[in-house]
Write a protein that binds this DNA or RNA. Structure first.
Length: 563
RNA sequence: UGUCUUAUGGUGUAAUGGUAGCACUGCAGUUUCUGGAUCUGCCUGUCUAGGUUCGAAUCCUAGUAAGACAACCA
């Protein structure tokens, strides 16, 4: 008998999926589903874009549709090919493939022709007023605007001037083309919006100096959607007020029942993070971070370098959902998604990041034993490996206390602890230098408690990680923490640069890791046992290993201590 | 004194007129050769006031609060 998955609860749909399914049911647009991801190539993609990418590409994937990548490159002043390449890399790294790559600049001629058409219909005009005057005439949300004196100039004159706007004869800022709609509209975007402006100071990254007049977003975006056959144009909430204009432009030219439809969802806000391109660019340019891929940045490349896997990011995006409520997500949820994903996949290794020497005084000098240890207790298929044990080891400095509180289950004189995958040892004391710093810790091992032997099953409160002093590899470890010290930097009145967390990066240069790590490659991720998840930084070389901390393990002892 | 949008535990998100659920966080416990992970339990919520209905988080009205919109940016 066929077993159905009746017990598996159906994941509830978000409001956009609900709409898509309804459209499909209604046979809208011939049952076609087409989305697009429309970045402007003026910056690197961040986790907020990942949310949009997962929606745009995910809808297409789940409903048998297509998703195109379209660069919204209508402003040559800000855009650059550098960004085009990184954007494509990041999308693919997230696991998506577009059907086609398009550029709004592909449509410059088509858009131009349509604008000419609009002028001929008397629905657009060339305005010669300054930007300031136009802004002043726009009125305010509660006060109607006033009409431009150029609003009713003859169609022939408009056509002539519009042509000149693109030849270089007209100075930048001297003229614009405006749609003639309604200067008294309660929607500010209807007060004769600008369709074209002159830019002749910058070449376009694809069309060079060919165009001098460039279309504005409201005109270009919707028409591009229309040209391509987009059915669902998904964007963030701040474009809600633009939607009537989006529809207006399409209504001017549509020649069939097909209509792209814009739907807005909430953008991603994260605590202890800024998500604005402008602020991120400032952090990079002012060298407050090491670059767009600084592991503290919320950029996709930053998260990648930090050690986040695409799965971890998908896991996070799945948890936060899509709604119309503009809230702020706890970055702890992103960190949780990383732990949850990495826990199942990360190879466990021993690394001591703040070392103190531990000498097993009754262990034969010169002897080395290879201890067998699991690669990942969460994944039996991950197998096991051997790690060398010897008389002189390194353990974490914090794992020893000369005078310890009752609940300290680690190394302290007279107390037994387990050295993971090796022996149970009893601490016998320590050596201090003249200033009272602990330089060596001593213990004795019980040969009958080697892992795997019956006596090893003895209950011991604490288990410590360790590396063999002579076999360990020296490494640099970069401990990253939240970039900002306040929960919502964007809502803070102070300059966001004054809100940076001074402890967001700590570099530890005197660390030791187990020898198996010699073959690790950049971006390989690991769990440093009892410490956290780490990956290999691209700066790493075979002479000098460099690790980044992705996220720490939950630490209930630290919590206990901070009470 | 405009237009548009939103309001469910501390945070995010479900419930599509019919028992307010899930995740994160927090707390307590279980278990453990990672003070991790696992497992269990607990705390905490429908903005307010009316209305429609046998029945409202859901529909209607009015308030309140929050956000977006007045770039030759996207």
């Amino acid at each position: 008998m066929e077993i159905t998955n009746l017990e598996v609860p159906k994941k509830s749909l978000n409001f956009i999926e609900t709409m898509v399914e309804q459209d499909l049911k209604d046979g809208k647009n011939g049952g076609r589903i087409q989305t697009r991801f429309p970045p402007e190539p003026n910056g690197y993609l961040h986790i907020g874009h990942a949310k949009a990418i997962c929606l745009d590409f995910g809808i297409a994937r789940n409903y048998d549709g297509i998703c195109n990548l379209r660069f919204d490159d209508t402003n040559p002043v800000k855009e650059d090919v550098e960004y085009v390449d990184s954007i494509m890399d990041d999308i693919q790294w997230l696991g998506y493939q577009w059907k086609n790559v398009y550029y709004a600049s592909d449509y410059f001629q088509q858009l131009w022709d349509l604008a000419v058409e609009l002028i001929k219909q008397g629905k657009a005009y060339v305005d010669e007023q300054s930007a300031e005057t136009i802004a002043k005439q726009k009125g305010t949300p509660t006060v109607a605007g006033t009409e431009s004196p150029f609003r009713n100039r003859p169609i022939e004159e408009n056509l002539e001037l519009f042509a000149k706007m693109n030849t270089g004869e007209i100075a930048e800022g001297a003229m614009v083309l405006r749609a003639k709609i309604d200067m008294a509209s309660s929607n500010m975007h209807f007060r004769d919006p600008i369709m074209y402006r002159v830019i002749n100071s910058h070449p376009h990254h694809r069309t060079g100096w060919q165009w001098k007049a460039y279309p504005m977003y409201d005109y270009a975006h919707g028409q591009s959607d229309y040209f391509e056959g987009v059915t669902h144009s998904l964007c963030t909430l701040e474009f809600e007020v633009h939607r009537p204009l989006y529809d207006w432009f399409i209504d001017q030219f549509a020649d069939s029942a097909y209509r792209p439809r814009q739907t807005e969802f909430n953008r991603l806000n994260l605590t202890y993070t800024v998500m604005s391109k402008r602020k991120m660019l400032q952090l990079v340019q002012e060298k407050l971070v090491s670059g767009w891929d600084d592991p503290r940045m919320p950029t996709i490349c930053g998260l990648r370098r930090r050690g986040y896997s695409p799965e971890a990011i998908h896991n996070f995006i799945d948890k936060i959902g899509y709604t119309k409520y503009d809230g702020i997500n706890d970055i702890g949820l992103l960190e949780h998604a990383a732990r949850e994903t990495l826990n199942k996949t990360a190879q466990r290794v021993n690394a001591v990041i703040n070392p103190v020497k531990l000498i097993v005084t009754n262990y034969p000098e010169g002897q080395v034993e290879l201890m067998c240890t699991e690669n990942n207790p969460e994944d039996p298929a991950a197998g096991s490996r051997e790690i060398p044990f010897s008389r002189e080891l390194y353990i974490e400095r914090e794992d020893f206390m000369e005078e310890a509180p009752k609940k300290f289950f680690r190394m302290t004189p007279g107390q037994e602890v387990r050295l993971k995958s090796a022996y149970i040892v009893k601490c016998t004391g320590c050596l201090k230098d003249d200033e009272g710093n602990i330089t060596e810790v001593y213990c004795e091992y019980d040969p009958l408690t080697k892992s795997g032997l019956p006596d090893a099953n003895r209950k011991v409160k604490g288990t410590l990680h360790w590396v063999s002093a002579t076999h360990a590899l020296k490494a640099e470890v970069r401990l990253y923490d939240r970039l900002f010290s306040v929960e919502n930097p964007s809502a803070d009145e102070r300059d966001f640069r004054d809100l940076l967390n001074p402890d967001s990066l700590k570099v530890l240069t005197n660390c030791y890791v187990e020898p198996s790590l010699s073959s690790a490659k950049p971006l390989d991720h690991f769990q440093f046992q009892r410490i956290g998840y780490f990956n290999i930084d691209p700066d790493s070389t075979s002479e000098k290993l460099v690790f980044n901390r992705t996220v720490s393990l939950k630490d209930s002892w630290a919590k206990e201590q901070s009470r």
